[in-house]
Design a protein around this nucleic acid. Structure first.
Length: 487
RNA sequence: GCUCCCGUAGUGUAGUGGCCAAUCAUGUUGGCCUUUCGAGUCAACGACCCGGGUUCAAAUCCCGGCGGGAGCACCA
């Protein structure tokens, strides 16, 4: 038996969080429920989970459903499923659409403090005055007027775009992205999937995030760099109320090459039949990863290795596959799949026995044994192997025997492995009664061919098609259907 | 235009003034292996954005360039 040296994987350890106290860390994952989770979400979900586990803290899954236009009702169910698959432990779930009265109350307090105002300017004018560092006519109106207009907003007296609640920051702030920002808007045209038409005043992300990050007792927030300016805005709300800010950290942007992630386009594609569903293996969703045989712990290892630096990074499929390969290789049983199959007759013998290990590193798992008969015995090998063998004159059929090729015909010449010393090529093969097999590749193409008989218990498992790659078996009989994992 | 963030091999990462002619992983190339184009194993390739300054000493500190990214939404 092969003694496999224990592979010590040096996992890059995440840096410690400043001020983290064991048992008191509270962190969150805050997705918008526009669809299931994709690769891009997994980084923030996993990093937060890693830290929560390190410090025995609390992980809050906060569904940010404050924009009814971008909600897929199924996402409320799919997101927790995806998190579970990822191995992320959720201790508490918060749905923002259930907290509107709470947000309204905080808004009122801000108005009373003179730190917010209700603006009824046309959108463009308000934006322009901000650009010029000038207050709009409504900014300095008396508090009583503000409160009255706010009540009218809540009562539904204003139509969409006719009034907003604006949080005051600093109109003279050199960074235009930080000057006064909208805290609430009016939405009437799209009913909310959860609250229907009960509320028409919706908090904006910067408002609800700040309020919730405080009210839920968050101690540390890790999120993408795209929120850097949002943090600066949210800081004003914290300061107005004298709340202590969590420690905010922003990691760099990730670009994921060749990945289809955009929820809206995928959603449309599913409707039109372009994609088979959210788990279509061409997609970058968590579901598609699982369907292809990518393991959650490989994704986790990848993100831990990337760390939480502010540098923008490029996602590497190669690295993810390497992490995944380490994890699936031992468990993946070996089978033969012959793509572009070509028949090869083997004369000179009446009966052949094959004996191939289920896994070369684990002989104790047994062997795939076949008895081949026929006159001549026929097998299939892949086109490339056959044409090369024709040139060289000899071929080793793996775990079966050696064949000499003379003018296109094969003749059995024994089973002596020493033939390999002469650089004879080893080819894999399938018997003539092999099953039809199709492998769906992540790029949407298919590889068709024949596979050796695969036992029923392998269904749903990741196996290795030797010299082809790892695949996840969707079906093993009567036809074999598989999804390509990686090589 | 304004503001912010960032800049170590193809990719990711370690490195917080000397132990760095720079770590690990991935990748590529080649070798080994009586049976996979996988695994294992051995080796090679490959980087501190540029220019000044501080210092006995700089990838590491300072300044200036250059380059990349993000934000300036009644999206999240």
């Amino acid at each position: 038996m092969t003694v496999k040296k224990e592979k010590v994987e040096k996992v890059h350890r995440l840096v410690d969080l400043p001020g983290a106290v064991d048992g008191e860390v509270v962190m969150r994952f805050a997705p918008g429920p526009s669809g299931p989770l994709h690769l891009g979400h997994t980084r923030v979900a996993i990093l937060n989970d890693e830290y929560v586990k390190r410090y025995n803290g609390k992980f809050i899954n906060r569904i940010e459903d404050t924009n009814p236009d971008k909600i897929d009702p199924d996402a409320y169910k799919m997101i927790p499923e995806d998190l579970e698959w990822l191995g992320v432990k959720v201790h508490e779930t918060v749905v923002q659409s259930e907290r509107f009265p709470f947000y309204y109350d905080i808004a009122k307090q801000l108005l009373e403090m003179g730190k917010a105002y209700v603006c009824t300017c046309p959108v463009e004018e308000w934006r322009k005055s901000k650009e010029e560092c000038k207050p709009c006519p409504h900014r300095e109106e008396p508090i009583e007027v503000q409160l009255e207009k706010w009540d009218r907003m809540l009562a539904g007296d204003f139509e969409e775009e006719k009034a907003v609640l604006v949080v005051k920051t600093d109109l003279k702030h050199p960074n235009p992205a930080v000057r006064d920002f909208v805290g609430f808007r009016i939405v009437k045209s799209t009913p909310h999937p959860r609250t229907g038409t009960r509320y028409c005043v919706y908090p904006m992300m910067n408002f609800s995030v700040a309020v919730d990050d405080h009210s839920l007792g968050l101690t540390h927030v890790i999120r993408g760099k795209d929120h850097l300016n949002n943090t600066l805005r949210q800081e004003y709300i914290f300061n107005y109320f004298g709340w202590k800010m969590p420690w905010y950290h922003h990691y760099g942007l990730v670009s994921i090459p060749d990945a289809i992630l955009k929820t809206s386009t995928v959603g449309k594609g599913i409707k039109t039949g372009e994609y088979t569903g959210w788990d279509d293996v061409r997609l970058g969703t968590v579901r598609a990863m699982g369907k292809r045989g990518i393991r959650a712990d490989a994704i986790r290892a990848f993100w831990i290795d990337c760390g939480i630096k502010e540098v923008d990074i490029e996602f590497s499929w190669d690295s993810l596959y390497a992490y995944n390969r380490d994890r699936i290789d031992t468990d993946a049983d070996r089978y033969f799949f012959v793509w572009n199959p070509q028949p090869l007759d083997v004369c000179g013998v009446d009966e052949l026995h094959s004996k191939a290990p289920v896994h070369p590193d684990h002989p104790e798992r047994g062997f795939r044994e076949l008895k081949l008969t026929g006159r001549p015995i026929m097998v299939f090998v892949t086109e490339d192997d056959l044409s090369q063998a024709m040139e060289r004159g000899k071929l080793r059929l793996k775990d079966l025997g050696n064949v000499e090729l003379v003018s296109g015909k094969g003749r059995y010449i024994g089973n002596d492995l020493s033939i390999l010393k002469d650089k004879v090529k080893i080819a894999h093969w399938v018997p003539d009664n092999a099953r039809e097999c199709v492998v769906h590749m992540p790029d949407g193409t298919k590889r068709e061919g024949k596979a050796e008989p695969i036992p029923e218990f392998e269904k749903g498992k990741v196996v290795q098609f030797e010299r082809f790659g790892f695949v996840k078996l969707e079906q093993v009989s009567p036809k074999v259907v598989a999804y390509y994992t990686h090589n």
